[in-house]
Simulated scan of single mutants.
Amino acid sequence: MSADAVTVEVGLGTRSYDILIGPGLIGRAGEEIARRLPGIRAAIVSDENVAAHHLGALSESLSRSGIESTSIMLPAGEKTKNFDALQQVVDGILAARLERGDAVIALGGGVIGDLAGFAAGIVRRGMNFVQMPTSLLAQVDSSVGGKTGINTAHGKNLVGVFHQPRLVLADTGALDTLPAREFRAGYAEVAKYGLIDRPDFFAWLEKNWQEVFDGGPARTEAIAQSCSAKAEVVARDEFETGDRALLNLGHTFGHALEAATGYDGARLVHGEGVAIGMALAHRFSARLNLASHDDAARVEAHLTAVGLPWRMADIPGPLPDAERLLGYIAQDKKVSRGALTFILTHGVGQSFIARDVPASEVLSFLRENHPG
Rank of each mutant, 00 (worst) to 15 (best):
residue 1 M to E: 10
residue 5 A to T: 11
residue 8 V to N: 13
residue 11 G to D: 14
residue 12 L to H: 02
residue 15 R to G: 01
residue 16 S to P: 08
residue 20 L to Y: 13
residue 20 L to S: 04
residue 22 G to S: 00
residue 23 P to G: 11
residue 25 L to P: 13
residue 27 G to H: 01
residue 29 A to N: 01
residue 29 A to T: 04
residue 32 E to D: 12
residue 35 R to E: 14
residue 36 R to A: 01
residue 38 P to G: 10
residue 39 G to T: 02
residue 41 R to I: 12
residue 42 A to G: 13
residue 46 S to T: 15
residue 49 N to T: 13
residue 49 N to D: 11
residue 60 E to F: 07
residue 61 S to W: 03
residue 63 S to C: 03
residue 64 R to N: 12
residue 66 G to L: 09
residue 67 I to F: 11
residue 68 E to M: 06
residue 68 E to R: 14
residue 74 L to F: 03
residue 75 P to F: 09
residue 76 A to Y: 07
residue 79 K to G: 06
residue 80 T to R: 03
residue 84 D to H: 13
residue 88 Q to F: 07
residue 92 G to M: 06
residue 95 A to W: 11
residue 98 L to I: 12
residue 98 L to M: 09
residue 101 G to R: 15
residue 103 A to Y: 08
residue 104 V to D: 08
residue 104 V to I: 11
residue 107 L to Y: 10
residue 112 I to P: 11
residue 112 I to M: 08
residue 114 D to R: 05
residue 117 G to Y: 09
residue 118 F to H: 05
residue 119 A to M: 01
residue 119 A to H: 08
residue 120 A to E: 04
residue 121 G to Y: 02
residue 122 I to D: 05
residue 124 R to A: 14
residue 124 R to W: 09
residue 130 V to H: 01
residue 135 S to E: 00
residue 139 Q to R: 06
residue 139 Q to E: 14
residue 140 V to D: 12
residue 144 V to I: 15
residue 150 I to A: 10
residue 155 G to N: 13
residue 157 N to C: 02
residue 157 N to G: 01
residue 161 V to Q: 06
residue 162 F to P: 07
residue 163 H to E: 08
residue 170 A to F: 01
residue 175 L to I: 05
residue 175 L to H: 00
residue 178 L to I: 07
residue 182 E to V: 14
residue 185 A to H: 05
residue 185 A to K: 05
residue 186 G to Y: 11
residue 189 E to P: 12
residue 192 K to C: 05
residue 194 G to V: 02
residue 199 P to H: 10
residue 208 N to V: 02
residue 218 A to M: 04
residue 218 A to P: 00
residue 222 A to I: 10
residue 223 I to E: 07
residue 225 Q to P: 03
residue 228 S to L: 15
residue 228 S to C: 10
residue 231 A to H: 09
residue 243 D to I: 14
residue 243 D to H: 14
residue 246 L to Y: 04
residue 247 L to G: 03
residue 249 L to I: 11
residue 249 L to D: 05
residue 252 T to L: 01
residue 254 G to N: 06
residue 257 L to G: 00
residue 258 E to V: 07
residue 259 A to P: 02
residue 264 D to V: 02
residue 265 G to P: 01
residue 267 R to E: 00
residue 267 R to L: 13
residue 267 R to I: 04
residue 269 V to Q: 13
residue 269 V to F: 07
residue 271 G to K: 00
residue 271 G to S: 00
residue 280 L to G: 05
residue 280 L to Y: 13
residue 282 H to F: 15
residue 285 S to T: 06
residue 287 R to F: 13
residue 287 R to Y: 11
residue 290 L to K: 02
residue 292 S to K: 09
residue 292 S to Q: 13
residue 294 D to N: 11
residue 298 R to N: 12
residue 300 E to W: 10
residue 301 A to G: 09
residue 302 H to R: 02
residue 305 A to T: 13
residue 317 G to R: 07
residue 318 P to T: 12
residue 326 L to W: 05
residue 327 G to Q: 12
residue 332 D to E: 04
residue 334 K to Y: 08
residue 335 V to G: 04
residue 335 V to A: 14
residue 337 R to S: 15
residue 337 R to P: 11
residue 345 T to S: 15
residue 347 G to A: 05
residue 349 G to W: 14
residue 351 S to E: 10
residue 352 F to R: 13
residue 353 I to S: 10
residue 353 I to A: 03
residue 355 R to E: 15
residue 357 V to I: 14
residue 359 A to F: 00
residue 365 F to I: 06
residue 368 E to D: 15
